[in-house]
Amino acid sequence: MLEAVELTKQFKQTKAVDRVNLYLEQGEIVGLLGPNGAGKSTTISMLSTLIPPSSGDVRFHQKSTLKNPAMLRNALGIVPQELALYSDLSAKENLRFFGSIHRLSGAQLQKKVEEVLALIGLTDRQNDLVKHFSGGMKRRLNIGAALLHEPKLLIMDEPTVGIDPQSRNYILETVKRLNEEKQMTVLYTSHYMEEVEFLCDRIYIMDKGCIIASGTTNEIKNILSAEHTVEIKVEKLTEPFLHALHAQPVIRHIAVQDRVITMLSPKEVNIFRLLFQLAEQTDTVLMSIEMKTPTLEDVFLHLTGRALRD
């Protein structure tokens, strides 16, 4: 349905997106995962024809959109990271405006506005001004404004930033419903791996402007199939213990948070014996050792050496 071919964007000296290749099939939810500054928003802007690429192509149903973006634009709904709404208008007035710019009018517009208000759960608050809404309600309306013209493809740029867990769940469920009931194709970007894991059939992981991994959730996790994620809790974190861990060639990607140390180690290594030895040598008291199946976060750590939310 939508395809990016060797997509590149150069801003003066900075290459924000570097030869990105990705595709979306009709009816699937594809995740674009990456930390802040990875190039996700620039990629989305090019995919939605808002900015032209420096090189490469965006194809919609095998046709280039660079010269003729109208076909893609008509089929596209976009949910920007910013709250693209008029805060001095009510929810209903906002939806009526965003519907009318898609040439909806009269009874058809009225019907679509009511439908969308029900879908995003704002029917009761339709006449309230947006500036009086909570963050979660504004986010839901931000999504609603992209759905009025029944787009075939929905591009969502971090739609759950800065909202409470309840509103986040509502949004995720809504996206899932749209995909299942209306067969809407969704490109979902986020730096919350649990959202992407919950929603997406396939995932692209992006870092520093490049796609560094892609596939289904399981395929990506299998990148670390030969390794364990080990989580140690210590009574008191000491420098000698950390030095000793770093000195072990079988231990990689050590991350420390408070008194919890996370690391990757090969499955064939008896990590327990090694950790006990190092603890004894450095007078460190181990509170617990936990072996975990790698998550997407671990995969990202493995691929880039950085945590997703760094």
């Binding site: 024809t49 008509n74 596209l76 693209a84 965003f98 404004a145």
Partner: peptide
């Protein structure tokens, strides 16, 4: 433009 309303208009049928 900063808030993204402009982009919504650009991507509309206007």
């Amino acid at each position: 433009k900063r808030e993204g309303v402009w982009n919504r208009m650009i991507l509309s049928r206007l």
